[in-house]
Design a binder for these strands. Sequence first.
DNA 1: TTACTTTTGCTAACACTGTTAGGTAAAGGA
DNA 2: TCCTTTACCTAACAGTGTTAGCAAAAGTAA
Lengths: 203, 203
Amino acid sequence: MSIIAERRIREKEAMRTNILTTAWQIVKEEGWQSLSIRKIADAIQYSVPVIYDYFDNKEAILLEFGKQGFELVIKKLKSAKASSTDPAEQLKAIADAYWAFAFRNKEYYQLMWGMGAPTCEMDKCMPERSVFRDLVMGPMIEIIEKAKHGDAETNACLKYHTFWSILHGLISIKMVAPADDTEQLNKLVLDDAITGFIKNLKS
Amino acid sequence: MSIIAERRIREKEAMRTNILTTAWQIVKEEGWQSLSIRKIADAIQYSVPVIYDYFDNKEAILLEFGKQGFELVIKKLKSAKASSTDPAEQLKAIADAYWAFAFRNKEYYQLMWGMGAPTCEMDKCMPERSVFRDLVMGPMIEIIEKAKHGDAETNACLKYHTFWSILHGLISIKMVAPADDTEQLNKLVLDDAITGFIKNLKS
DNA sequence: TTACTTTTGCTAACACTGTTAGGTAAAGGA
DNA sequence: TCCTTTACCTAACAGTGTTAGCAAAAGTAA
């Protein structure tokens, strides 16, 4: 591999990230709805078709961000889980981390859950369901077994869906119909819902 | 009011509903994404600008459907509530009705929650929050008071959000990432989540 | 019936989308 | 120097929502 070929793929990489960071800036300023190929092209001061030398189409750009979003949230959830060894505390920490991710990274969350950029099949870039599953199923099974309800496995499978529903539902309701409630109240609702959920697991 | 003027507003009304029913048909067949003014115009065999004589813009059409959706779901919820006098059973019935509405009327649900037609500010046609609130807050307060936790009012306020979060979250997760699970399992998850929630209210 | 006004509907355009065909000029390799 | 590949652009196509302006029809009044 010649030195000049190296420079070339480095330049190509640079252009790719240039497109992505520029697109991200547009999204942060104006939202997913108003992200267009032409706007990116204008911003990076190249003509439109250049974008297509680096991405197959617009969806490919969105999927790239989707991947980033999922990687980030999973990193956050894993580190939250690592903050404790008590299964109940782990669940609570995971919920808090997910909540924080959603509101500190509205753009990612909206993209990942189709609330802002629907022209995109996000499932194409979703990680294996097992990644999420493994994160919360373990603590749940522990809790359920400790409480000695038989059939902890299938029981946890049900609770798994409930857990994410509470989180996702609460967040998306807040995002779609922005709260006239205070930030504090929202956090209270989350705490109440999740601690209630965990209490339910134990009993 | 002359007889001819009457016919005119009747014709105008007929055209309006013609536009709406045609649009609805397109949505059912091809989804919100591919509903366009031109497609409606083609289908009703009129030119494009005619649509604008009956609706300010595309959003106005979507809001019309949004209103219909909210009216329908509220009707369903009210009738579900009326099916019992026991507050716990009322909550369960409301949850079931909401669940059924979402999957029997995917198009409405997607529109109302911005999961399919995001170019539309649905909150413009959302009913007063109090309509939903009144439906479930009453039964909740009853349950909480019966269990003698002090401060039933604020307690129910928290639970109110949890209730809708479970429902909305569960449904939207199923819709965004369609289940490889069976229909039966989904219903089981809903039942478990809601009965768990109600049990939590009582304890 | 005639003259005027209102309503109805159309064609054609504007300003945007995503996407691509085809050509030009520069860069790299022989 | 010649040739090939890459980089980049202009211009277009097929869509989107929306509107200006005109022609014909329908209704009203004399």
